[in-house]
Design a protein around this nucleic acid. Structure first.
Lengths: 190, 190
DNA sequence: GTCTATAAGCCGATAGAC
DNA sequence: GTCTATCGGCTTATAGAC
């Protein structure tokens, strides 16, 4: 594959994704991203205005892939709505057992940038979370369940609560408990 | 008040609490904490082994005060269990409107230290969250509601989900929605 | 126990060559 | 568009005086 500009840019973003997720955005230096991408820092600054720009690009690059993963887990599961939603939580529980799991990159970035509410990366996180909530609402409507907006919001509250508490306690049981609660409110026990 | 050792130590911890919560633990330097406390860096390092030690002390110092605030909000509210628990969420929604609000310090620290699971500060956060969950379970038992453990866990999932999503979206409505959901599962609508 | 001073290295960002 | 080289400043932590 020829090394053109778009290609180099993607290589840098991939390196940023890997390092920022693994170690946190403040802990990872621009030098480290450049080295991992196999380019010099000067090249990195040719493609990105600043480290903040790179951080925002990192999260924007994860929006669609993460949403698609949720959709796939949902669609691959047979049964009623409650079972399909609960399957998302079961997959997250399994993922959280992996030694490289570090919680939700969007939430962790918002936590690291809590003193900069208007930061583009925080906005990217907000947009992603809204997209997930909106998609869930659409699926709940499609399943003919009432109060879809309220229920979608409760599901994402449980999901992001589990992301946070599993990160704190390192105990996947919080994903299981959240999944059971989500299934229950979607009529999974009826 | 005489400036003795315990006094100096407390002054340093107070400065750390204020700065670490406002700006994040990685963003705040030891120099900044020492300056805010009105001591030199050498004095700070006399009282604390390292910055990590100071970070852990910061969170440990917030365990009891935060729990006591929750208890007070709960006890000051008249009515059934569901209303008393929902009041906690209403107070959090109000607090989150303050311009200096930055989410939950325990969750934000766990997010910043996600690559160091055994860090003493993360353990302090885990202990605090367990204490809140345990206290809620006790109150649910005392109110004679069934499945107290499961319900306490669902309440903390909703609460920490709201902490996270209000930080991302800067929208207190997530605290209100979480409070309504918590009240509902505790029989508030029955 | 608190001070002044500084070590030793990493940080984000830039200059200028080609 | 990518390179080599480096700036000025900030970082955690320590040495030695009193």
């Amino acid at each position: 594959m020829p090394r053109n500009a778009a290609n180099t840019r993607k290589t840098i973003v991939d390196a940023a994704v890997s390092l920022f997720y693994a170690e946190g955005i403040r802990r990872v230096s621009v030098d480290a991203v450049a080295e991992k991408a196999g380019v010099t820092k000067r090249t990195l600054y040719y493609h990105f205005r600043s480290k903040d720009d790179l951080i925002a690009t990192y999260l924007e690059s994860r929006d669609l892939p993460n949403l698609q993963t949720f959709r796939r887990w949902f669609e691959e599961t047979d049964g009623p709505l409650a079972a399909k939603v609960e399957a998302i939580f079961s997959h997250l529980a399994r993922a959280s057992r992996h030694p490289k799991w570090r919680g939700c990159g969007f939430l962790r970035t918002a936590a690291e940038l809590a003193n900069m509410p208007g930061h583009p990366a925080v906005k990217a996180g907000s947009a992603h979370k809204k997209r997930v909530e909106g998609w869930l609402a659409d699926e709940i409507v499609a399943a003919g369940v009432a109060n879809a907006q309220d229920k979608a919001r409760q599901v994402v509250l449980l999901m992001d609560g589990a992301f946070s508490l599993v990160l704190v306690h390192r105990d996947p049981a919080y994903f299981e408990a959240a999944g059971a609660a989500a299934a229950s409110l979607l009529g999974g026990d009826g």
